[in-house]
Amino acid sequence: MTAPNGRGLLHLAAALDQEAAHDAAPYVESARLAERGALDFVTLGDTFARPGPDALAVLSRVAPATTRIGLVPTVTTTHTEPFHVQAAVATLDWVSRGRAGWHLDVSTTEGEARLFGRRRAAPAEALWQEAGEVADVAARLWDSWEDDAEIRDRKTGRFIDRDKLHHVDFQGTAFSVKGPSIVPRPPQGHPVRVVDATGEHARRVAARHADVAIVRAVNAARADALRTELREAAGRSGRDPDTLRVLAGLTVDLGDGEHAADPGHGGGGPRQTAQGPLYRGGPVDLAELIAAWHEAGAVDGFHLTPLAPRRDLERLVNGTVALLQHRGLFRTFYPGSTLREHLGLTRPVNQYAVAGGAS
């Protein structure tokens, strides 16, 4: 589908993070609100560095309470077992019927390392190299079952066609994995992988493995430069750059209601803060900003983090998103059922089935 400006429709996502919320109800409520706005997906952050509920477990609870919106928890690749991580993400894809994503992240501090006691903290470059290897082996394990590997024939007692089950023997720099997976191939083939490409090392992983890369910029020119860099790097790694969606990450403070954006925000644009680009103003000016960046071809969409979760998400959906829908720049309903369909991404072909079973 295309927008009136001839470009593809916008992709919009929102963060559900809420400090001190340990009950599932606030996350379910926010996810349903985002779904009413037809957003592509919602994210929920997670880290070993601070208290809080497990993001993947929370979104597994949100899954049966929603029907269309994509669900993307942060699951770190540091100090965790790659085999278990891929199985957990695949399970979320099954329970959500094809709406799962996975925001890859790393743990850099010595305090986080001490929680596990297995190894010391490592430099970011080494951690992101490991993250790329985890993304790689996860895809192999998701493909270790062909789509029709399950037989479930009670008469013969056969559960699986062993010829369609492929063994994975992967050796990384810090781990090794032998498959196949214990979970059948997910409904999406590969759940959507999301990487915050703010850092140089993370950008390398995003270019090679991510379906969605999040960049942070205070103007369209910088966002466009980052998108171009990522697409070119994806091409050099052997990927089709059109299989990568680049979203601008932006924290939004819509507490000023319908008032114009703060002058210090560039007349409606974001300004840099210690936490990244921040927009402060009203839903109307935010819609104008999003439309302008999209019109310029700077990004494929936005990942928006409400400063005040409940207040700003409501104003975002009922104000900004509604305006973008009215202008024909964003969908008014979900034409598909999976997160890959929302993002306009095809379902990956099983690498082992194509290779004739060779692993």
Rank of each mutant, 00 (worst) to 15 (best):
V218N: 09
V218Y: 04
N219P: 05
N219A: 10
A221F: 11
A221Y: 10
A223V: 03
A223W: 00
A225E: 15
L226I: 03
R227M: 09
T228K: 15
E229K: 09
L230T: 00
R231E: 10
E232F: 04
A233E: 11
R236N: 12
G238Y: 01
G238D: 00
R239Y: 08
D240T: 09
P241Y: 06
T243I: 03
T243L: 08
R245S: 09
L247E: 00
V252K: 06
D253S: 11
D256A: 14
E258M: 07
E258V: 06
H259L: 15
H259T: 11
H259A: 15
H259F: 08
A260I: 01
D262E: 15
P263C: 07
G264Y: 08
G264F: 08
H265A: 15
G268A: 12
G268V: 13
G269D: 07
R271L: 14
R271M: 13
Q275M: 06
Q275L: 13
G276V: 01
L278I: 06
R280Y: 05
G281W: 01
P283S: 10
V284C: 03
D285V: 07
A292F: 04
E295C: 07
A296C: 11
G297W: 11
G297T: 12
D300R: 05
G301C: 03
G301V: 00
F302M: 01
F302P: 00
F302Q: 00
F302L: 02
H303M: 02
T305S: 13
P306C: 08
P306Y: 12
P309L: 07
P309Y: 12
R310A: 15
R311N: 10
D312E: 13
L313H: 07
L316N: 05
L316M: 09
T320H: 10
V321C: 05
V321Y: 06
V321W: 06
A322S: 14
L324E: 02
L329D: 03
R331P: 02
T332D: 09
T332I: 05
Y334M: 00
P335K: 01
P335A: 06
G336A: 07
